[in-house]
């Protein structure tokens, strides 16, 4: 996990304080306000002057993953972040991004607006981990702009859910680009709103959204996913929910908008409950009911 060795984290912020910026050859790392001041070209991406957050610019090929860590460590902190990540042409890289609360009852708010630009022929594997406390309010809004022949794999994982999570993700796929989104969310007494949208803007662009959602202990999950095909591209939505108890609710709303006759977009969605036969089977292998359910949930999230 990213926090195990914070010295190697390229951008590390706790509450509102930047604890560390590690700039190495090939990448520029600045706070977003500083980038706004010093690199005028970033302003068109920030839209308005940022208050806090990071700017990472991958200029040259690097052979290590980018890492960022933004934490809430004190009660009632309100973070309002604006992040910008720019991957230059032809660069292939991986980013491990952690946002978390260091304790369970901090009642923090984490608001983040992010823009990620993948320039022509670039590749990004973006691993985004959330680990929040039970009373936190979290609302990230990320936009990915994929230039020609760029490729994105976006893995989002939230196994320690906040009180509320409003997660909005928008992908713009240009010509020959591809995006592959894998979202794993386990909600425990949480209210979760997801809105994922992929725009297939360019010829032969491809987009896949895969959601695996688990609702436990009075959780409410609402996931709205959409693909807009505006060019001859291909897209697929794969949304699956698993309800663990009677008090939880999941609603999946997959939408397909085809605006080009040669585009091909499809979806599949299902919501199920724990398979009683499989539960009995695992208990008859010596696992307690809770252990068996946990194992089945782990398995479900991997499918």
């Amino acid at each position: 996990m990213v926090t195990k060795n914070v010295e190697n984290v390229h951008f590390w912020q706790v509450n509102h304080k930047i604890k560390n910026i590690l700039e190495v050859r090939g990448i520029t790392v600045l706070s977003s306000p500083k980038a706004w001041q010093e690199l005028k070209w970033t302003r068109k991406f920030f839209e308005k002057e940022p208050k806090e957050g990071y700017f990472v610019w991958v200029r040259k090929q690097i052979d290590f993953p980018l890492t960022t860590c933004i934490s809430i460590a004190s009660p009632k902190i309100f973070q309002n972040l604006t992040n910008l990540l720019v991957i230059e042409k032809g660069i292939k890289t991986r980013a491990n991004v952690l946002c978390n609360a260091t304790q369970n009852q901090l009642c923090g708010t984490h608001k983040a607006k992010g823009k990620l630009i993948l320039k022509e022929n670039s590749y990004l594997e973006y691993n985004h981990f959330h680990k929040w406390g039970k009373k936190d309010l979290v609302s990230p809004d990320y936009e990915f702009i994929l230039k020609e022949n760029s490729h994105l794999i976006y893995n989002y994982k939230s196994l320690f859910s906040p009180k509320t999570l409003n997660l909005k993700t928008t992908i713009y796929n240009n010509k020959e680009s591809s995006s592959n989104l894998n979202f794993i969310i386990s909600a425990l007494n949480s209210k979760i709103e997801l809105k994922d949208t992929v725009f297939l803007k360019g010829k032969n662009s491809r987009g896949i959204i895969k959601l695996r959602l688990v609702g436990k202990e009075n959780s409410q999950i609402r996931a709205k996913t959409a693909i807009f095909a505006r060019a001859p591209g291909r897209g697929h939505l794969d949304c699956q929910g698993l309800l663990i108890d009677k008090g939880s609710k999941i609603s999946l709303i997959p939408e397909l908008f085809c605006e080009h006759k040669e585009a091909q977009i499809t979806h599949e969605a299902s919501i199920g409950k724990i398979d009683e036969e499989a539960l009995g089977y695992l208990r008859m292998r010596g696992l307690t009911e809770k252990e068996a359910i946990d194992l089945m949930v782990t398995g479900f999230l991997k499918t």
Partner: peptide
């Protein structure tokens, strides 16, 4: 069931269910 397994009782199922992802 799990307590019975602890005691040493086990069953080979005729048609065991699939456990996806495990």
């Amino acid at each position: 069931p799990e307590k019975r397994v602890d005691l040493g009782i086990t069953l080979v199922w005729q048609s065991p269910p699939a456990i996806k992802g495990v």
